[in-house]
Design a protein around this nucleic acid. Structure first.
Lengths: 132, 132
DNA sequence: GTATAATGTATAGAAACAATGTACAAAAGA
DNA sequence: TCTTTTGTACATTGTTTCTATACATTATAC
């Protein structure tokens, strides 16, 4: 436990730091790289590693806890919990489709080609269909 | 021209309105649904349609203009310009891959299945490979 | 058992940001 | 030249983000 979560904080991004932390850790949770029972670094340790204030990490942990991923207790730290996946609201799929296109549009505007974007989509799709 | 850009503003989202506007319009630009020469609604018209202040739309237009998509002139409105796609920075692909996984993780956490997510990825990939 | 130290929590403040209100500037057309 | 239509500038207000500091809780040492 306490292995490094391999998070990279982009201080130039418009996405707030605490949400970058949430998004990064949630990826690992969903992908199973963090499993129930695993301990996360303490808020102070991770804050030091990322170069931010520990309250910023604490806020991220709190959000993940509110989503049901973490069990937070004083003096014991943050531990990954088992979690029932909720039922997705009806519109979730359409909203995802829209966000996906907006993300693709953004990186295409930055210069990534249709082909490159499609390759990455295929790669992730294959991962999703192959794993577990 | 002045056709409705079919933007939906989600006031519950944490993404600021002006960026929702930017993201939505950029999608249409990248996908060719808005082409050079097309006129966008005036800031006041689009603001009325979206239910926000016209300065909020103006800010969105300014960002798109800074990205090279729009030509803004008083009394004439916003017109889509021809634009050279820049060269993507070297890390762009990896950053995109990360963001893609974070987006997928987010919606999977909300309850979308691996299968559904993969289907949407495939659908967009097919669009990208098929069009033009 | 009690003291101590390690950990998350609470609250306040400063700075940046988002959205608005209002006034202004430019330019097309009457 | 006047008026109207459009984008622009700037101040204001509320919100968000991040930090600083103090506090509460609890496992462990002894």
């Amino acid at each position: 436990m306490n292995e490094s979560p391999a998070l990279r904080i982009d201080t130039t991004s418009t996405t707030p730091v605490y949400r970058q932390i949430v998004d990064g850790i949630r990826s690992q949770l969903v992908e199973g790289r963090l499993a129930p029972g695993d301990a996360l670094p303490t808020v102070r340790d991770l804050a030091l590693e990322l170069g931010v204030h520990f309250n910023t990490v604490a806020e991220a942990y709190r959000l993940l806890s509110a989503e049901g991923w973490l069990d937070l207790r004083r003096r014991r730290g943050a531990v990954v919990t088992a979690r029932d996946t909720p039922q997705a609201p009806p519109k979730a799929r359409q909203i995802f489709a829209d966000k996906l296109r907006q993300l693709a549009a953004q990186v295409r505007a930055e210069g990534l080609t249709r082909h490159t974007v499609a390759d990455e989509l295929d790669a992730l799709s294959a991962e999703l269909r192959g794993e577990n």
